[in-house]
């Protein structure tokens, strides 16, 4: 049963040297960022002062630090994001192999059903979060 998917998946030729331009590209991009910041540090003026060093909080003198506790809702969003994002990443390989399957293949229905079950587990998580009020912002 695994046969059609494994043969399709083995078709693209994985050659690491096709990533060679990526190394050059990353070096170029990092070089651009570093060069700009270093240049402006060299060229621009530099003066310091007690009031100048204050954080800008709408002209008020800052009270305390900004490293405080914040709304737990952001953690919830991050956790639900993880659930969905991992699911989507698992769906990508399937999305590229599934349309290439022979439509007359009797196993195609099983592959579809398995993915639907996989999606169903996420939908259960979504409904649970919805009922818990994770997606309500007030």
């Amino acid at each position: 049963m695994l046969h059609p998917l494994t043969t399709l998946a083995s078709q693209p030729n994985v050659a690491l040297d096709q990533y060679l331009p990526l190394a050059v590209i990353i070096v170029g991009a990092v070089g651009f960022a570093v060069a700009n910041i270093v240049l402006t540090k060299i060229i621009g003026p530099s003066r310091r002062g007690a009031n100048k060093g204050m954080s800008y909080e709408s002209g008020m003198n800052p009270v305390g630090t900004a490293r405080k506790r914040f709304n737990v809702r952001f953690y919830l969003i991050a956790m639900v994001f993880l659930v969905f994002d991992v699911e989507i990443i698992f769906l990508y390989p399937w999305a590229t192999t599934f349309p290439n399957l022979d439509p007359a293949n009797p196993d195609a229905g099983i592959w579809l059903f398995r993915i639907f079950f996989f999606l169903f587990t996420t939908i259960v998580a979504y409904v649970y979060g919805f009922r818990k009020g994770v997606f309500n912002f007030d």
Binding site: T40, I43, G44, S46, R47, G53, S55, Y56, P62, T65
Partner: peptide
């Protein structure tokens, strides 16, 4: 102008 302005980091 971006290049010539002061690259400032506040104290904190």
């Amino acid at each position: 102008k971006f290049l010539l302005k002061e690259d400032y980091a506040p104290d904190r």
